[in-house]
């Protein structure tokens, strides 16, 4: 499968990422190579095999409905690039 410019732009939008125009060609090549590599998996005969949804054999790993220790407000906000006393701050979303 060839990643064209349209797909590249769509992926950039979905990821909310910007890229340098001069890298576009290289990125399309790289992504095409990645997808082609994954496509190799299609060569395996999976007739009658259920899709794998988890690597673990465990089922029903559940917790009771109990409140446990919280992060303090200060620690919760500690790593935020932008914040004030109460909130995480992000670039304005609505115009």
């Amino acid at each position: 499968m060839k990643i064209n410019r349209e797909v590249l732009d769509k992926i950039a939008h979905l990821s909310r990422l910007e890229f340098d125009e001069k890298d576009a060609e290289k990125m399309m090549q790289d992504m095409t190579a990645i997808v082609d590599w994954v496509e190799k998996l299609k060569e395996v005969d999976t007739e009658g095999v259920e899709p794998l949804t988890t690597m673990s054999h465990e089922i029903n790993v559940l917790r009771e409905d109990e409140i446990k220790e919280h992060l303090s407000h200060e620690r919760a906000l500690q790593n935020a690039p932008q914040k004030d006393a109460d909130y995480f701050r992000v670039p304005k979303v609505l115009e």
């Binding site: 917790r63 409905d65 109990e66 409140i67 446990k68 919280h70 992060l71 407000h73 919760a76 109460d86």
Partner: peptide, 27 residues
């Protein structure tokens, strides 16, 4: 109306001070 959140043991109390019912999982 659960006491704690769906995947983490943080409180679900409505009207708490902003950003106080948090855990590293929620964040």
């Amino acid at each position: 109306l659960t006491e704690s959140k769906i995947y983490t043991p943080d409180s679900t109390a409505y009207g708490s001070q902003p950003n106080t019912n948090l855990s590293v999982i929620t964040l």
